[in-house]
């Protein structure tokens, strides 16, 4: 490793820790949120340095992009009064001493365990690489997500659906009056939206052999939807078609798993001859559902002029 790369790594690591400290102590929560988004973008740079381009894409699109939009939207609804936090979170005083000591102990134990790992430790990479020829794809991360660990991914989509149900249930406030979008945002959406749909499709297709996949594609698609919502606010209520599309990815995934059981195999154990096709089908269905789920998490369940239910 060259000295330049080492300097970049150390600078990036220090900057990340500094941003965390800053955004936890700033009293203006709007500034803290902006720092949080910057933190996410720098984090994706760190993922690239750690040779994890799939994680970098997911972080930039979901971790920083969608989460940032969600927090900014919540901040807007809190108004100027709710967005200020004068309490100093990280200041150490007597009452916080025990918590601080516990956290410091945890940090010391974690650091010790990181530094004491043997240098030749390889994790599960050898096993994963040995199983790659049977996985149906050539990108090892997609293989892990949709083949080796497909149970996790199936249940992850279920968690996404539960979160939408939760947000729909909780959101009962009338929508703040939507100001008409300016011509610049309108033009931006016109140019960006078709591009984003193409990029999402590319990421989905590329996931089999290069960095990309259902989650990254879905996040780009959802970001396009969020932009469209900002330019021309629409109501994404719990209409039956919306519900069907949200459940579609999970249903296809589950149906393929059950079909494999009926065919004499085990649940979600893809036969290696058809694994590539099955993974692409599952990913395509999941992309559409996840994109709509992420968009629904942002849009929520507020309706123009609708009053809150009486308690």
């Amino acid at each position: 490793m060259t000295a330049d790369a080492a300097a970049l790594d150390i600078l990036l690591a220090v900057l990340l820790v500094f941003l965390v400290w800053r955004l936890l102590t700033l009293s203006d929560l709007f500034k803290a949120t902006i720092l949080f988004i910057v933190f996410g973008l720098l984090l994706s740079l760190a993922w690239v340095r750690l040779r994890a381009p799939d994680v970098a894409l997911a972080e930039a699109a979901i971790g920083s992009g969608v989460t940032g939009a969600l927090v900014l939207d919540a901040l807007r609804r809190l108004g100027a009064h709710g967005a200020v936090d004068e309490a100093r979170p990280l200041r150490l005083n007597l009452a916080r001493l025990s918590g601080g000591l516990l956290v410091a102990c945890l940090g010391a134990i974690l650091l010790w365990s990181v530094l004491s790992l043997p240098a030749g430790w390889r994790g599960l990479s050898a096993e994963a690489m040995a199983a790659m020829p049977h996985s149906g794809v050539t990108n090892p991360v997609t293989a892990s997500l949709l083949n080796f660990r497909s149970h996790d991914t199936l249940l992850e989509i279920a968690v996404l659906m539960l979160a939408v149900l939760g947000v729909w249930t909780l959101d009962a406030e009338p929508k703040p009056s939507a100001e008409p979008a300016g011509p610049i945002l309108d033009l931006l959406v016109r140019i960006l939206l078709p591009l984003m749909v193409v990029v999402a499709g590319y990421l989905l297709w590329a996931g089999g052999h290069a960095p990309g996949g259902a989650f990254q594609g879905a996040a780009v698609l959802a970001a396009g939807g969020i932009l469209l919502h900002l330019a021309r606010p629409f109501y994404l209520g719990n209409h039956v078609i919306i519900r069907l599309v949200i459940g579609f990815g999970f249903a296809v995934f589950l149906a393929i798993g059950v079909m494999l059981v009926v065919g004499g195999g085990r649940f979600l154990e893809f036969p290696s001859r058809h694994a590539g096709t099955l993974i692409l089908v599952v990913e395509a269905a999941a992309t559409i559902s996840i994109a709509l789920i992420l968009l629904a998490l942002f849009v929520g369940n507020v309706r123009e002029g609708a009053g809150r239910d009486a308690p």
């Binding site: 040779r51 994680v55 994790g123 994963a128 090892p140 991360v141 892990s144 992850e156």
Partner: peptide, 14 residues
């Protein structure tokens, strides 16, 4: 790099 933690982290991000 070991792809299994990458997949775990992607699940975690979502």
């Amino acid at each position: 790099p070991d792809p299994i933690p990458h997949a775990l982290v992607m699940t975690g991000i979502v």
